[in-house]
């Protein structure tokens, strides 16, 4: 049979992926190699396929955003995963520290942190409702001492108020946008303090000139991540983990299995 002697282009191409996987052996491999030696087009195709494979091998696994599992849990069973909420709260505390609010350190002790943070964000939201934008406040008003005083003075009422509304998504969004404002205003007013965490997160932009105008995409992503982490942190105390049963899966097959 002539097929045994010389290989056709089509057969070469059909065997190429196996050859690249190192799966060819014996006679098939010999015929493959001899066609490669004789046929320029196929030799080139082989070189290119091999190069393409090597290029693809340089792609590392991309890291999913930290809040992805949390969001999936919320989207499916309607409540955050327990672990995700724990991680989220810790990360969020560290980030608040990272914002350069050094004087607030004592208040960021884990046992005070949550009520302080609730008051802090509630004040910020209240100011906003009263028409005061956070980034319009002067440095003096934002001085940690003043802030702390305000926080202490209105701790009880604001905390109570905030708690009452925490299940209201609108308020969560409000807090979220205040938080974003705060975060954006701090590096602008005071360029110096940047935490190592921030440096790490902010991947240097490869093409400054084209993207300096708008908010950098990395930064948007970072903020988005923080938003979810923040929400996770805020929601946690109100989630009753022993609480409502899982929503039933609505698939009929599921229901059947459950009965069985």
């Amino acid at each position: 049979m002539e097929r045994n002697i010389s290989m056709q282009h089509a057969e070469f191409e059909a065997l190429m992926s196996d050859a690249l996987d190192g799966l060819l052996a014996g006679e098939a491999q010999q015929r493959f190699e001899s066609h490669r030696a004789e046929c320029r087009a196929c030799a080139l195709m082989f070189r290119e396929a091999e190069a393409g494979m090597r290029w693809l091998a340089t792609l590392e696994e991309a890291a999913p955003p930290a809040h992805l599992v949390h969001n999936i849990m919320v989207a499916t069973i309607g409540r955050p995963a327990i672990e995700a909420a724990e991680i989220g709260r810790e990360g969020w505390l560290q980030r608040l520290r990272g914002l350069g609010v050094q004087v607030l350190q004592p208040m960021l002790q884990p046992r005070f942190a949550l009520s302080f943070a609730m008051a802090f964000f509630a004040i910020s939201a209240a100011l906003s409702l009263g028409g005061v934008r956070l980034n319009h406040l002067s440095a003096a008003q934002l001085a940690p001492g003043t802030l702390a005083n305000n926080a202490l003075r209105s701790l009880h009422e604001t905390t109570a108020r905030a708690e009452k509304y925490y299940d209201n998504l609108r308020v969560v969004y409000e807090l979220e946008s205040r938080y974003r404002e705060l975060r954006n205003s701090i590096p602008d007013a005071n360029e110096a303090p940047r935490s190592p965490q921030q440096e790490q997160k902010t991947v240097p932009n490869k093409n400054k000139s084209s993207s300096e105008q708008r908010t950098s995409p990395e930064r948007q992503q970072y903020t988005r991540e923080q938003r979810d982490v923040l929400i996770a942190g805020l929601m946690k105390p109100n989630i009753d983990f022993a609480g409502p049963a899982l929503p039933r899966m609505d698939d009929p097959a599921v229901a059947e299995r459950r009965v069985a």
């Binding site: 190429m16 290119e48 396929a49 091999e50 393409g52 494979m53 290029w55």
Partner: peptide, 15 residues
């Protein structure tokens, strides 16, 4: 297999 071959070669050519 044919799509993988073409995908790899085209990628290599682009790069």
């Amino acid at each position: 297999k044919s799509r993988i071959n073409r995908g790899r070669t085209e990628l290599a050519r682009l790069l």
